[in-house]
Nucleic acid binder design. Sequence first.
DNA 1: ATAAAAACTTTACGCGCGTTAAGTTTTGAT
DNA 2: ATCAAAACTTAACGCGCGTAAAGTTTTTAT
Lengths: 341, 341
Amino acid sequence: MTKIKNMEEFAAVSGISRPTVSKYFHDPDSVRATTRARIEEALERFDYRPNIFAVNQNRKLTKNIGIVVPYLADPFFVEIARYLEQSCIAAGYRPSLFSSHGEQKLENEILDSLRSLKPAGVLLAPLGRASDRSQIEKFCENVPTILFDSNLEGLGAAFVGSDNFSFVSQTVEYMTRTGEPPSFFEMRTPANPNANKRRKAYIEVMERHGFEPHVIKIDGEGWAFEEIGRQGAARVLERQELKTNSVLCSNDRLAIGFLSACYEQGIRVGRTADCALRVASNDGHPFARFTCPSLTTAAHDYDNVAGRSVETLFELIESGGKFSNRAETLFPARLVLRESA
Amino acid sequence: MTKIKNMEEFAAVSGISRPTVSKYFHDPDSVRATTRARIEEALERFDYRPNIFAVNQNRKLTKNIGIVVPYLADPFFVEIARYLEQSCIAAGYRPSLFSSHGEQKLENEILDSLRSLKPAGVLLAPLGRASDRSQIEKFCENVPTILFDSNLEGLGAAFVGSDNFSFVSQTVEYMTRTGEPPSFFEMRTPANPNANKRRKAYIEVMERHGFEPHVIKIDGEGWAFEEIGRQGAARVLERQELKTNSVLCSNDRLAIGFLSACYEQGIRVGRTADCALRVASNDGHPFARFTCPSLTTAAHDYDNVAGRSVETLFELIESGGKFSNRAETLFPARLVLRESA
DNA sequence: ATAAAAACTTTACGCGCGTTAAGTTTTGAT
DNA sequence: ATCAAAACTTAACGCGCGTAAAGTTTTTAT
């Protein structure tokens, strides 16, 4: 069996002309059934596939899709990325995964190298506060981009994410209904715009129920949320800054740190009578099941956020890269009751 | 300012001929200093960069490097991947990150799509037991590949990983020195060859110290180690199958599940007198700091494993893709003492 | 059966760059 | 100043494929 070097040779052994073979690889349904059969039969005898570099050089639009997440060490983004990758592959695209690892410089570099990939579209979960807004703006002008998870107002052709109000209202209402109203535990300078929306939602829901909001802001920079949460919680607990026996953490990774601090100080967390504190949180982190105690949390609707993101991107690509108006789709959270609250 | 379309135009505005410009982009030091200066000056005035598809089509060897990990939801691999990515970029290569997500089908697909990327080299952490050995073998014949983390005997040009004996001997010796000898807690059918080496090391070290080894094998398939560990531990604890008050988990993710089960059953874990059980583990998982109690573990030497892997790959690339013999480099573990043991 | 439409074939050019060959200029050592 | 080596320039071909144009065959509709 001779090695097939290029489409010319493959066309020869399949008995079909090269332009038709080229058409087939672009879209198998664009050729006659009998032709398709002959090509596919040849495809089984010889393992040929078009040189993607040559293909991408000559097509105006590649089949590449960029997936950018801010922090891959967060299993939440890994989950989302996995779903996005597979949806892209299923639709015949070639996804490439990138993580900004929490750094603006890296995010910019990724956008830069993404540009040269001439992608059909990009799914971008930006860093948020640390993002270089002007760079992302420029990027979105040239490349069809859907923002997800973290919304940068006005940027990208559309945004798909979670409804932060839904997260917080569910957790706050659950906690107040079954116990004392919670304090809100967050970073002083959150990395992510979702955090601000969650704080606002907390205040609004608390006031609506006639409770006085109590926001605890802890110091810390960067994306090492667990450690920041642990140290912040340690201080808060030592100084007894909690007004009630109930805490709502802005996100699960802070909560993981919080629970760690509680354990270290011998403070028993849970909803049972023998516990001194209840802790709930937001995100539905994959590890929330394994904290001690297991973490009550309002979970992202992973499947819908990821699914809608790719759907929207495909629509965008088919629309030629532009939408007439920028839609924002928000999915509500699903409250997951566990032992911590 | 006119837009530069291709190298021809860029050569024109820089006043240098296209072949020389091409040479510059291949290696800036290969042209005369004055020439380099003129090109770089033009580079500042116009933002041009070579079309990577055209470049890759024509170069025998691309500057692409594939990084494949078995399970990205494990932050351990994210850490390694981050280091590998940055080393590749620093060396002028373009890394692409892939995760097999624990599935053989995906691992094979990744190798397949990697082939068409014509990479200069690949850093592959295989699934292990779930890997399709023959597929990986074929792949390694055609693409310069360094295996890391998980060794498949004889495959790849070299292997870089951790010395499992060092992990287990340190943890076992520490535990026996400061308390009772541990039972070994692992999956009956581990996903990874490292697990087997750890078991063997456990048995050897125990026997060397005159203790009877006690291996506890729990059921469970797949890569959801935390949940497998939790359920397995729950059974073990209920049936009181432990011979001593001391457990060594094969890896940190199992240990996270183990600690979770202990907490659920009200079993206090730690090295202090008021604790019923000591639990240690292996890997140095980024979350091990935040378990309750914090997890004593033998940590991978991340930096060295990652650093040596890329170094070896670069050597391999420079050697033309073949080594005369297949070296296996193992780095010892670093024992991290925390509260759990 | 017949004509129009659809799908195909052949031919040929272009994409952007790597690379080579032959000739020219610059460099640096003597 | 002299000359060989080094670095450059011009010219040209090739990579593998997209794609367009013109002509031919097959399909579909009437």
